[in-house]
Design a protein around this nucleic acid. Structure first.
Length: 550
RNA sequence: GCCCCCGUAGCUCAGGGGAUAGAGCACACGCCUCCGGAGCGUGGGGCGCAGGUUCGAAUCCUGCCGGGGGCACCA
């Protein structure tokens, strides 16, 4: 990006200033550039003079000294000292035009960077229990995970999208027992759901489908056999339905990882030996404890219960070992906020296993509530108001659902306004952005019909303030993608796309694209093309479609 | 009681230690001979409180207040 070039210029000036005594020789941090909020402060600004002046020098004097020593560059039109000592860089129109040309060129890699240097990231998300349909909370997880994956790939990472199937443990036992009870009920045999069993009506349907398929042969079987068989059949059906819901929503995973296979292979019990070898296991009250408090956890944690069963943590550690052995450079977990209490023990395990703490990243996604007709419905399972992802997609569509999930920081609870997301009008941000794209497509089509060139053309004829503003907005796409990826913040991109669409609207209002002035029309069409490509690219990273017409 | 997240405009929320804190909705007032009015413009209004670090704090630290979530040999 252009900031690298600008930083190079400033470093030359710093060295020159030290060499001729204008600055005392110290080691300076690399100049940091940021986008000023106000247009008159230029395209990029750095506070390096304020940092350098920390020793007591006058920051404005330092800034002036640096300006004098900046080497010439065709990127830079002029540099001003402003405020307490900022260096404001006003870049040349050549630079701006070059950026827009790249944005308009599909082969230029605009918006892509190599910041990730090909590092391989494992991103695990959703991982919803296969004991019920996908709900809207899982939908948020899917949207956020997919968007992060796209952003990481755009910044030069290789990403493996992974889904952990919780197909083992007590919840699955309860699930199997619940299905078995529904199966018996289907054949008019008295049976009760277990305590804490799965009450949902969907299990009645699943049991009925299975009963229709395999008949009543299991009614007479021993309960253990019946539960095992029915549990497995029902699990498979639930998994298929989850995959179908996710696919309909647009999510695709590279790895579906079975927890059960990890138990069967002995990987879970192997955790105990691994931790024992490290001296991190202690027996107390007939249970085995992992001394996680050595690594900052509040207290030690049980890994094998006194009844011999392993705990959830044990499986989590086995899973961590498995991932670590697959050669990724970085692991990201996206968990629900209700798991926050388990983060310290996982990070303790990371350290006990000798892994690098910084390579394991656990992010929590806050809850979703739905706002319908002015009433807020909490989407928690506890409240019993689970809204299925399929229903949401039916009602608002996957584009609007996905986009809405991405308008907020994952740290903040999300209030999903169903009425707003459903609107096919400008109040709905996703339609506003898609509309801008469709409108450009319409203009480009019309231009082609009238014999204009469809490729890029020189931008020299442009000059209207709205054109300038649109070009500057386009130029900030690259850093937006990079920052969104680094901060794990897809909402930066949705926000940016809304701003871009807004800038385009102003441009469209002020500047007639297709006119008698041929060269100007071609330049404006290039600007349209660049905007179209950036909108489509940004939406694409978020798995939201960019329709040609609406 | 302890831990995590949040507290920014009437509402829902953005804000990478920087300059005069933003968007959408809502509200008020405007704009259609025009390439898609499914659009655009103008306006009012805000960083929970108190300290601290810093040249500079909505942002970092501490305490308090308020909201949400979590604190099992459950998952």
């Amino acid at each position: 990006m252009v900031t690298d070039a600008l930083a190079g210029l400033v470093e030359v000036a710093l060295k020159a200033a030290v060499a001729d005594g204008a600055l005392s020789s110290e080691s300076f941090p690399g100049p940091h550039f940021e986008r000023p909020k106000r247009a008159e402060h230029g395209d990029w600004a750095t506070s390096i003079a304020l940092v350098v002046a920390r020793g007591g020098a006058n920051p404005r004097a330092v800034a002036a000294a640096l300006v004098e020593r900046l080497p010439p560059s065709d990127l830079v039109e002029r540099v001003e000292v402003a405020g307490p000592g900022f260096l404001n860089f006003h870049l040349s129109s050549k630079w701006l035009h070059d950026v827009v040309q790249r944005a308009a060129d599909p082969a230029s890699g605009f918006g892509r960077s190599s910041e990730g240097s090909g590092r391989h990231v494992n991103l695990e998300y959703v991982s919803a229990n296969p004991t019920g349909p996908m709900n809207v909370v899982s939908g948020r997880h899917a949207a956020v995970g997919d968007a992060l994956a796209g952003l990481l790939e755009a910044t030069g990472h290789k990403v493996t999208r992974e889904f952990l199937i919780n197909d083992a443990g007590r919840q699955l036992d309860l699930f199997a027992q619940s299905v078995a009870a529904r199966y018996l009920q289907h054949f008019r045999v008295m049976a009760e759901l277990p305590e804490d069993g799965y009450q949902g009506d969907y299990l009645i349907e699943v049991a009925e489908q299975i009963a229709n398929e395999i008949g009543d042969g299991l009614v007479q079987s021993p309960s253990a056999e019946r539960e095992k068989t029915l549990g497995d059949l029902a699990l498979q059906r639930m998994l298929d339905s989850m995959k179908a819901s996710l696919e309909r929503f647009g999510s695709r995973f590279d790895v579906w990882f079975s927890e059960r296979k990890m138990h069967d292979s002995g990987a879970v019990s192997a955790v105990i030996e691994r931790l024992r070898d490290g001296g991190f296991i202690e027996e107390r009250d007939k249970a085995l404890w992992f001394r996680s408090s050595q690594f900052g956890d509040d207290k030690d944690r049980v890994v094998v219960r006194s009844n011999g069963a392993t705990t959830y943590l044990t499986a989590d550690i086995a899973y961590l070992i498995d991932k670590a052995g697959r050669g990724y450079d970085h692991l990201i977990y996206l968990w629900g906020a209700d798991h926050h209490g388990t983060v310290p023990r996982m990070m303790a395990a990371t350290q006990a296993l000798g892994l690098i703490k910084e390579q394991v990243e656990i992010r929590l996604i806050q809850n979703v509530s739905l706002l319908r007709e002015g009433v807020t419905v909490k989407a928690s399972k506890r409240a019993g108001e689970v809204v299925a992802l399929d229903e949401l997609v039916d009602e608002v569509g996957s584009d609007a659902a996905r986009y809405t999930f991405l308008t907020r920081s994952m740290d903040a609870p999300l209030e999903f306004d169903i009425e707003l997301a459903k609107q096919e009008g400008p109040d709905n941000p996703v339609y506003y952005v898609q509309y801008a794209h469709a409108r450009i497509c319409s203009i480009l089509k019309k231009a082609a019909e009238q014999g204009f060139l469809t490729g890029t053309s020189p931008l020299d004829p442009v000059g209207h303030p709205s054109e300038e503003q649109l070009m500057r907005k386009l130029s900030s796409y690259e850093e937006t993608v990079l920052l969104a990826a680094q901060a794990r913040a897809p909402q930066r991109l949705t926000r940016y796309l809304e701003e871009l669409a807004s800038s385009f609207s102003a441009y469209y209002r002020d500047c007639r694209v297709i006119s008698e002035e041929r060269a100007l029309s071609q330049a404006r069409l290039t600007l349209c093309l660049a905007t179209k490509r950036v909108i489509a690219d940004g939406l694409g990273l978020l798995l939201v479609s960019a329709p040609e017409s609406m």
